[in-house]
């Protein structure tokens, strides 16, 4: 059985080329890779990463559990991140973590995590995930959220928990992208809202051919 993105309704109305990744059907591109690349370089792109693994750790000794999957994760400051190319460990509070990982990798991580010391929840299907890339992505964000996302204050590896277009989100900033994790059931609404405000600032939907899943500081 195929796993579908919460954006499947949007896909139907666009010339999407779907890629199959670990059982998921996810947008590879929207018919014009060159345009997506150009927007990534000069404008802004919105990529659906809903298929990445998402695990939350909360209560108990979440830091020790996080250490089990990524060395040094227990030392991260709250609202900061540690990452390698396969996963990013976001420390949300002193005792809450969100782990983002390559698609299907969550199964391996769930086996590693000691469920006795903390509450481990696989939220892969519960949350959608967007990646906002391109030099004009700040212009999309400044029209979408009342949160201060000034780049000299919210630097790479910083995590923000707030709302975007009234949708609760966790925003993880990297050097090149802003990764937005949000409730699955609001994904399509958030997509519509972001694309709506992004029209004037060169925002186009793009696929994982343009921004493949990879994590970085």
């Amino acid at each position: 059985m195929i796993k579908t993105s919460p954006l499947s309704g949007i896909y139907r109305n666009l010339p999407v080329n779907l890629s199959e990744v670990s059982g998921w059907k996810i947008a590879g591109n929207f018919g014009d890779k060159d345009r997506e690349q150009e927007n990534l370089q000069k404008g802004s792109v919105l990529v659906d990463w809903s298929h990445i693994g998402k695990i939350t750790l909360s209560r108990g000794n979440a830091a020790a559990a996080a250490e089990q999957v990524l060395k040094g994760a227990s030392e991260i400051e709250p609202l900061k991140t540690s990452a390698n190319s396969k996963m990013a460990v976001l420390r949300l509070t002193k005792n809450d973590y969100l782990i983002l990982c390559q698609p299907a990798m969550e199964k391996t991580l769930l086996e590693k995590l000691d469920t006795k010391i903390t509450t481990v929840t696989d939220q892969t299907g519960a949350n959608g995930c967007f990646v906002l890339g391109g030099p004009r992505r700040d212009e999309v964000l400044e029209r979408s959220t009342a949160v201060d996302l000034r780049r000299d204050r919210i630097t790479a590896s910083t995590v923000i928990q707030s709302s975007i277009h009234t949708v609760n989100m966790t925003l993880y900033r990297t050097n090149n992208f802003d990764i937005i994790v949000h409730p699955r059931n609001l994904t399509e609404s958030l997509y519509d809202a972001l694309m709506d405000v992004g029209i004037g600032v060169g925002l186009v939907p793009a696929g994982i051919d343009t921004i493949p899943v990879s994590f970085e500081k």
Binding site: S8, R12, T166, V167, N185, S189
Partner: peptide
């Protein structure tokens, strides 16, 4: 206004 009242969709919406 549409941005202020997002729609929640179930996994079977389509």
């Amino acid at each position: 206004a549409p941005h202020l009242s997002p729609i929640r969709r179930t996994p079977f919406h389509q």
